[in-house]
Design a protein around this nucleic acid. Structure first.
Lengths: 153, 153
DNA sequence: CTGAAGTTTCAGAAATCTGTGAAGTATCAG
DNA sequence: CTGATACTTCACAGATTTCTGAAACTTCAG
């Protein structure tokens, strides 16, 4: 078990590092990786904290983040203890959908800019290019994820 | 000029703030916004620095980042001076393509995890879900951007 | 109701990130 | 070739973010 656990934990930490470079906070990434790579079905906050060697306070924040993001869920404790967490089904599709909100923000920012700069100016045209691209992505992404769900049915 | 410039600059700074929340570094975001919202065709490093009120050192780093990212390009100075920069055509599609590298990383990380955890384990199945999703996205995204380019032809 | 186990919150310490300013390097006009 | 101008790099200071540890709160078994 030790061998396997060590390798898995190592892979998890490496993955967490990668996520960090893509904008996710350090602790959030580590907790997510722990829940992703564990051989258990669920983990308690205590277990994760012990494995990562961090305080309960840090756990609380990270688990809250991930729960709000929709990546993990609180599982009603089966037996006696409290607060078990596990990866949600379709977590990745959920994450991708959330990232689409960035597309909305970009589109809106471009529109705002065009309004201020004037549509027939240098800046206006540049911003229109931006607006068109993000509007396109925004219109296509939901369908893409839809097709994914259809595929796995 | 002052009025228009102020409003535009304001919109640019607001946009930069938004980008920051999506993982882009502060200065990189500000420089990008400046080049995006300017009514000029190109800007020199000095002009951007003056407008943002930051040092030349900070400029250098941010411009390097954006150039490597593929969002802006160095324009051979027309007359006498040096180093004019401008937004690249199709910058947004380029940016999106780069972000697809994240999809590759995710897929690889999942594969690595499966190898360590074993394919017929709890973690293995969880990681397989992840791998399948990102492999799907990875296979679809290039076509999506392709269609964008085709559309604007 | 009471005590125990677990969770959340928060102030402050520690670590990290970011920008400045100056020194060094490159490029160009003359 | 020489001087001047602009760009780049880098050590350090300041600002910001992140984690810890302890106290307060919640929940549940007995």
């Amino acid at each position: 078990m030790c061998q396997v656990t060590d390798d898995l934990t190592g892979a998890a930490e490496h993955f967490a590092l990668t996520l960090t470079q893509y904008g996710l906070q350090r602790m959030t990434a580590r907790v997510m990786a722990a829940l992703l790579f564990t051989q258990q079905d669920t983990m308690t906050a205590g277990e994760i904290g012990a494995q990562l060697g961090v305080s309960s306070g840090a756990m609380s924040g990270a688990l809250k983040n991930l729960t709000e993001l929709g990546m993990i869920e609180r599982v009603p404790a089966p037996g006696s203890r409290r607060d078990h967490f596990r990866f949600r089904d379709g977590a990745w599709a959920i994450l991708m959908s959330k990232q689409n909100m960035a597309l909305t923000l970009m589109t809106e920012a471009a529109d705002e800019g065009i309004k201020v700069a004037g549509p027939d100016t240098v800046a206006g045209h540049r911003l229109a290019d931006m607006r068109d691209f993000y509007a396109y992505m925004l219109s296509e992404m939901p369908a893409l994820i839809e097709r994914w769900h259809a595929r796995t049915t």
